[in-house]
Write a protein that binds this DNA or RNA. Structure first.
Lengths: 202, 202
DNA sequence: TTGGAATTCGAACGTTCGTTCGGGAGCCCC
DNA sequence: GGGGCTCCCGAACGAACGTTCGAATTCCAA
């Protein structure tokens, strides 16, 4: 990674922060310039325009999420464990990259043309990854598609209320959301956490 | 309701549609004028400015949701049934008022001053309503606060993917989300839908 | 030391923004 | 029939927007 790429990364990080705070349309290029320590005109040396700023944030963020999720899922043996790993990775990544993930979740429809198509393709890939995991669970209690979008809703909505530095550690949040989802989607009697086993065993 | 209020309602409905399509900051007052059939200047006879347009949409929508939820919840006897009624009402209302609810969910942070405070108070009231319902469930499997925000995430996220005129009726969507949430939050062995009862009964 | 590419920026461009202004219809009550 | 409302709009305002341009500065290989 040469100097150009490093400076571009700084710029994208600053832009993500500004976009997360004020929204894409609510933020101005002058805001980005101020936050990044660059001049207004200097930004255009690294980026073709405001829309490319948003595109690069979303595209790189999606690429990192997908790669990380594949790695996390691949290390697990059972379908339920793979789903739990998927959820844990998504939440931990979200908590570690709040600005970028908020921009990814909140500014979905602001791109146009080729950039829009490319980010949409990434999203489809990520959704399909989860749908494939859900397929492995026997006897689901709700439809796969609704379950997938409901899960993404639970997870992505955290940008409206969750603060990584607050009272709830991200790992705990991930476990609770995984328990909530798996308890509702998968068949009852999960070996580890279910109190069903305990009550029937006693 | 006199003529002024009726015309204002039309204006707010048009504005909600425009804000839902292009986002609050991405939409211009000229867009609102075009959509409502009014002139640009004519809008200011009904509203003090763009921000009041957003405020009135959100405030009235929240008031209707809260009132409707109270009515739906009050008709049920058990804690779980009250939660199910809450979810069903939220989803059905969402599907029936997509534009307004998308604006409510997506443009949360765009108000300022007194208007922001008033909408936030409404939101707090609505969240507290759900938290109270969750309190009635014995032996919850995840923390109340996380469960509440996760449920709102599932429900509000539908504006990113759900189309009321599509293949999934709103009532079915509501049942699936209720089953997903209650299966994960409440204790197992729900009398109505659980396949646990069936398998143990057979 | 020098030439050229990479990097940076002040200043300005044309456009669009939210809002305002002054006035013109339509209407009702005195 | 005239004064005072409500309702509505064309035109314009100043500000802010994304972007561009020409030049200054920095940097490194020759």
């Amino acid at each position: 990674m040469d100097g150009f790429d490093r400076r571009l990364q700084q710029l994208l990080a600053s832009a993500a922060k500004v976009f997360a705070e004020r929204g894409y349309h609510g933020a101005s290029m002058r805001d980005v310039a101020r936050a990044s320590g660059m001049s207004l005109a200097g930004i255009y040396h690294y980026v073709r325009g405001k829309q490319e700023l948003l595109f690069l944030i979303q595209d790189r963020c999606f690429a990192a999420v997908i790669a990380g999720a594949r790695g996390a899922v691949g290390a697990e043996a059972t379908p339920v464990d793979r789903i739990r790993a998927f959820i844990r990775h998504h939440i931990l990544f979200f908590a570690a990259h709040m600005d970028e993930m908020k921009v990814l979740a909140h500014e979905e429809e602001e791109l146009s043309g080729t950039m829009r198509a490319q980010v949409r393709a990434r999203k489809r890939e990520y959704v399909n990854l989860l749908l494939g995991l859900l397929d492995g669970v026997p006897g689901p209690r709700v439809s796969r598609r609704v379950a997938a979008y409901a899960l993404f809703g639970m997870m992505n909505w955290i940008y409206t209320w969750y603060h990584p530095t607050g009272a709830i550690p991200a790992a705990q949040l991930a476990e609770e959301i995984a328990a909530l989802f798996l308890g509702g989607y998968a068949e009852p009697a999960l070996p580890a956490t279910s109190r069903l086993v305990a009550s029937h065993g006693g």
